[in-house]
Nucleic acid binder design. Structure first.
Length: 572
DNA sequence: GCCGTTTTCGGCCCGACTGTTTTCAGTCG
């Protein structure tokens, strides 16, 4: 916990120093230190033993800050930087096309210190006077501002989920018989605007008081507690008597469309769905869990991820709800990075962690040579890595590491190594990391060429979207999925928090199991493996069953499958 | 700010793209 907190403080220091214009090497030093801290052991113990500086990237100055934080919970330098650099400036730096250099120009030359001020300065023509701010940049900034306005107040799912889970476990530890997140978190939405937690408890006051202790700006009633969480999301904690827990959760979880469609069905069953709680006549509906609540409406339990009013109610009535993918179905993962490129953990550490999660195999896919910024592997290093993987496979058997690469898709859709070298690998994830701005036709042709390459096993994070920060790139997805299907290329559902992909339910080939999906954690450290959970939620949201997912194959099945593909590649 | 060493400071990861400018600064992955 402390590791995470200090790492995030160091990252923030790095970002703020960059905005101040400090040396990029100093900025990077904080980033590196943060990475190492996440993978480091118990900091309190390291401090006692005076071994903090044994961590690579932690020197005298960093060790001092860590010690100070452990003792007081604060880092003075960070507090100072926060005072110096207003939030508006940090927002500015988040706009696409605005880095530290241009943000400094905006501040120094026309005194712009917020997105709103930038918008006004563009409007008035003032921004166009700055050297280097031409018409195209201004146009890009305008669309960046539009995106910023659209996503204001939204946060990534995981930020809210962590807070929700903490509240749930504190409630359960305090003896509440049940507690669960509701709303967008329960439905597996990629981004959310609030955290809602429902707690079943007869005497809420003591628990609410305990949860409110130490918080500021709380708004508390006899049954509820609201405040702004660490993620800056509004948090709503709502307590109900245990007998009404199911009904309340149902009401607070379904989307507006789902609840609207549910109303007439509830009415037929004699249940009123409006108001604060579902009611039967004058009395609140008795249901201690959601399954009982749906049962009272004459329906089977509908998984929260499906409650979007997109056909799930008819499916439930007709008994055709799919048996959605679940975490225990996942037997292995592809697409992970290691310290050989820009990962934070060694191959062995990643493998050991996967073993501890009960997985049978991982697919190692470090960056390819064109990704110089990420330490992409030269042909020689890729061969050397192959030997390392073989050594580890002997050591860790029967666990298996499949040796792959995340190959950049080059300008015209080519992969990043010669065929001969690709031939020594078990699999290839092909991903776009450059030229996001190509015209739709050119981008489509490029992607089709990549997925049709016989060496390509998986198309990585295919939308190019960065949630809350960047729109996806333009391409004809139908055409690309078709090309992928005919070449047996798997489409990755990237579980990396910031790169969740498209709505898979709309792709018939996936539903008909002609196109496999890979849950790719795109993990750069051990913690990245936990984003697997998010990938599963998004898959469930896309109505995916285990048959449509590559990662539900066992180790031997994957070995055979890759072997078959290899035969086809060499004979082609 | 860290590291390594040539003990006192220089090097630290890069290459392409974009939009601007007219030779390059800034951004991005």
């Amino acid at each position: 916990m402390a590791n995470e907190e200090i790492a995030s403080a160091f990252r923030e220091i790095g970002r703020l120093l960059e905005l101040k214009g400090e040396s990029l090497f100093q900025v990077r030093a904080y980033g590196k230190a943060a990475d190492r801290l996440v993978e480091a052991g118990d900091l309190a113990e390291l401090i006692r033993e005076g071994k903090l500086t044994d961590i690579p990237g932690i020197g005298k100055a960093m060790a001092e800050k860590i010690g100070y934080f452990m003792a007081t919970g604060a880092i003075p330098q960070l507090e100072e930087l926060r005072r110096e650099i207003p939030q508006g400036v940090i927002d500015l730096a988040g706009l696409s096309g605005l880095g530290p250099g241009r943000v400094r120009k905006l501040r120094d030359e026309i005194g712009v210190e917020s997105v709103e001020a930038l918008e006004a300065a563009i409007q008035s023509g003032q921004a166009a006077d700055i050297k280097g701010f031409g018409p195209k940049l201004l146009k890009n900034l305008r669309s960046g501002i539009d995106l910023w306005k659209r996503v204001r107040g939204l946060r990534l799912h995981m930020a809210g989920r962590r807070e929700a889970e903490e509240i749930v476990s504190r409630a359960l530890e305090s003896g509440a018989p049940a507690a669960a997140p509701a709303g967008g978190i329960a439905r597996g939405m990629e981004t959310i605007d609030r955290v809602t937690v429902v707690i079943a408890i007869d005497e809420p006051a003591p628990l609410l008081n305990r949860l409110a202790a130490g918080l500021t700006g709380t708004d508390q009633t006899a049954e509820t507690l609201c405040y702004t969480g660490r993620s800056e999301l509004p948090i709503e904690i709502i307590t109900v008597p245990p007998a009404r827990f199911g009904g309340k959760l149902l009401l607070l979880t379904g989307s507006a469309a789902h609840l609207e469609q549910l109303k007439p069905i509830a009415e037929t069953a004699g249940v009123e769905l409006s108001g604060l709680s579902p009611a039967r006549g004058d009395a609140p509906l008795e249901a201690s869990n959601e399954a009982e609540a749906y049962q009272a409406l004459g329906l089977p339990m509908i998984p929260p991820e499906l409650r979007e009013g997109r056909g799930e109610i008819e499916a439930a009535q007709q008994g055709r709800l799919p048996r959605l993918l679940e975490s225990p179905d996942i037997r292995g993962l592809f697409h992970m990075h290691s310290t050989w490129s820009d990962g934070k953990a060694t191959i062995e550490e990643m493998a050991e962690h996967a073993i501890s999660l009960g997985l049978e195999y991982i697919g190692l896919a470090d960056h390819s040579r064109s990704a110089g910024y990420a330490g992409g592997l030269s042909p020689d290093r890729l061969r050397a890595q192959s030997e390392e993987v073989a050594r580890l496979n002997e050591k860790l058997a029967p666990f298996r590491i499949f040796h792959g690469i995340e190959s950049d898709i080059l300008a015209e859709g080519e992969l990043d190594y010669e065929d001969e070298l690709l031939g020594i690998l078990d699999f290839v994830v092909a991903s776009i990391h450059s030229r996001f701005g190509l015209e739709r036709e050119a981008q489509t042709a490029r992607l089709i060429r990549a997925v049709q390459n016989p060496h390509t096993t998986i198309l990585g994070h295919s939308s190019g979207r960065l949630l809350l920060a960047r729109e996806p790139y333009e391409f004809d997805s139908e055409a690309v999925w078709d090309a992928a299907r005919t070449n047996d290329t798997v489409i990755e559902l990237n579980a990396h928090e910031k790169r969740l992909d498209v709505d898979w339910r709309d792709i018939p080939a996936v539903r008909e199991r002609h196109l496999l999906i890979s849950i790719g954690p795109d993990a750069h450290d051990r913690r990245g493996l936990e984003t697997l959970d998010m990938g599963i939620r998004i898959a469930r949201k896309g109505w995916l069953t285990k048959e449509a997912v590559l990662n539900t194959m066992g180790r031997d099945e994957v070995t055979d499958w890759l072997g078959e593909r290899k035969k086809r590649t060499t004979s082609a």
